[in-house]
Design a protein around this nucleic acid. Structure first.
Lengths: 340, 340
DNA sequence: TTGAAAGCGCTAACAA
DNA sequence: TTGTTAGCGCTTTCAA
């Protein structure tokens, strides 16, 4: 039989209101009674019922984190940052993973109406304007992570700029035949990285060749930022052995790793036969010696939580849109092209 | 202003009890009134308040998943299985990650008393007998995943058997100088795999050499089943260049990957200079061509959820202890030793 | 078949 | 400073 506030009150010989005050350290209570009550609560091993407390307080102490179903390295890192920071603020985390498109809206609707959570962190998934407005109307705190909507708070990476820099790195290494392996363009980061890539070529006066561009497949199981997708893309690219790029910008490390595998199967290697600059800087990037654009994913997760918690207490400010600039990490997958 | 059951009742011209009956498809209601109420609820976009519902029903529709803080590939896979299955049963998932030892007990205590969740899934972390008994007393459903306690339901891998088989594979390939890279022995799987390893050697009449055993370091950040730990262990092992093993059982794929890296740094490779059999069969194992003992992690996650959900409805049966037998996956990291 | 009312365990406003 | 009480939004008896 779980012990309730009534049990504590009875044993202490006070009303439940007083117990509540003692527990929530209200100033309107005599220090001695407070001490006595706390003591008794301890003895009885009392712990408030979370749901009852939530119902009365109109807040749950829980936030929802919505992520794509395919938990890749990227999301793990993000989750770690989020989780770590959330612990600091004493919030619990409900994890929703979206395996189908409609699911996201279901979850958003639920978080909005069901009142099971105080706020939501939406990761890497696009929210419709309809729902963005709903959240604003309802005054429900939400922050977007690695995704964007003009009406809402967000923390994103400067994808276009990062891609530009990555490509520039290839150009500065002397490459002129530069290609890209990208994820499908339904993904916003994929679109932006593509844009940055093309701009870098344009600015350098290098022609963009359509056949140097490879877009890996997307499946129900993945968003296309996968090792397998990178592998397939590179294989496809190697099909054309008369005219191949010498340098490649690949939209994620994990794809680059797959691509390197495809290279090796043909007795080729990076950077000898193909220079590569990728994106993310996941843990494995170091192992593969990838020159890559580092996204501080963990820190972004922390930042998102901080912002959300801020909104949870004092809401109603201007839209907060933080853009993080990725950092070029030079390893050895991008070689300087020998001039002959 | 959120719409409540009262709003629906008023608009339908009925009592809230009737609305509740309509919503929870109780048989004690006239089909027509039910239809009408449902219709109105729809129009009003009504959704029950989760906490209020939970308070009244004495169940939350949420389960807790407790995992170690260092989310490795192993846990990700496990989480995916859990998450996927949980969705089928309409349960929400609260994720607790344990970053310090005391934290686990805090979480267990909370789940027990706070009534925020209906049950718990404890992954890869040891529960004390004290808490095991508490859970039984309280009748709180809990199932252990990749961890064991005699009093509680659990789903574990036959670690000892798996290690035995892995080692046997090396022996059958002709190896006689066989070593092991292991994680620290505080980990139960590490202990059991060590045991299986030694038994295989013993049964084959092969001497176990202490200097062929390498145990990687454990840190606050990790349990020792990491790439870095494997890397360090192999480096250490290579220190001795006069007398090295030719075959190695490594306690996880990710450590094996680190070990291979150390090998490569010395211009060595597997299997040419060192045969390796590892454990887990994570996604990357295929890429590295690891011969390994496959743990059906995803399926174990699913199974755990199924069992938990079962207990959630009809509890109070015998202790369920499922032991999964790992499967040998032959790739190319273990070479047949040429007889000369 | 339905409505009214008594909880579920807590917080917070109101009195005392 | 404290006790009492009215909610919080729902489920579920108990009568009708």
């Amino acid at each position: 039989m779980p012990v309730t506030i009534y049990d504590v009150a009875k044993k202490a010989g006070v009303g439940i209101g007083t117990v509540s005050r003692a527990l929530n350290n209200s100033p309107q209570i005599l220090p001695e009674t407070k001490a006595r009550i706390l003591q008794i609560a301890q003895e009885l091993n009392y712990q408030p019922h979370a749901l009852a407390q939530g119902l009365a307080r109109r807040k749950t102490g829980t936030i929802a984190v919505i992520v794509p179903f395919f938990l890749t390295y990227f999301f793990i890192e993000m989750l770690k940052g989020i989780q770590h920071e959330l612990t600091q603020y004493q919030y619990d985390l409900i994890l929703y993973s979206v395996d189908q498109k409609e699911k996201l809206n279901t979850f958003l609707k639920r978080t909005l109406q069901e009142k099971r959570v105080d706020g939501v962190l939406l990761c890497s998934l696009s929210i419709s304007t309809h729902f963005a407005e709903k959240f604003i109307e309802a005054g429900s705190p939400i922050v977007l992570l690695d995704t964007f909507h003009p009406l809402l708070d967000s923390i994103t990476i400067e994808n276009e700029l990062g891609a530009y820099q990555a490509t520039l790195q290839l150009i500065q290494a002397g490459h002129r035949k530069i290609g890209m392996i990208n994820a499908p363009l339904i993904s916003r980061p994929a679109r932006l990285r593509y844009k940055g890539f093309k701009k870098a070529l344009l600015d350098a006066g290098i022609e963009f060749k359509r056949k140097y561009l490879m877009i890996g497949p997307r499946t129900d199981e993945s968003d296309g930022f996968t090792r397998e997708a990178g592998y397939q893309a590179m294989k496809q690219l190697l099909t054309n052995d008369s005219d191949r790029p010498t340098g490649l910008f690949i939209s994620s490390d994990i794809q680059a790793i797959g691509a390197i595998q495809a290279l090796q199967e043909q007795q080729l290697s990076s950077p000898t036969n193909m220079s590569i600059v990728s994106f993310d800087d996941i843990e494995l990037a170091e192992y593969f010696g990838l020159t890559t654009m580092r996204q501080p994913i963990y820190e972004m997760g922390k930042l998102a939580v901080q912002r959300l918690v801020e909104k949870l207490s004092a809401k109603g400010e201007a839209v907060f849109q933080k853009k993080i600039i990725p950092e070029l990490i030079i390893r050895k997958s991008c070689a300087i092209l020998s001039t002959h």
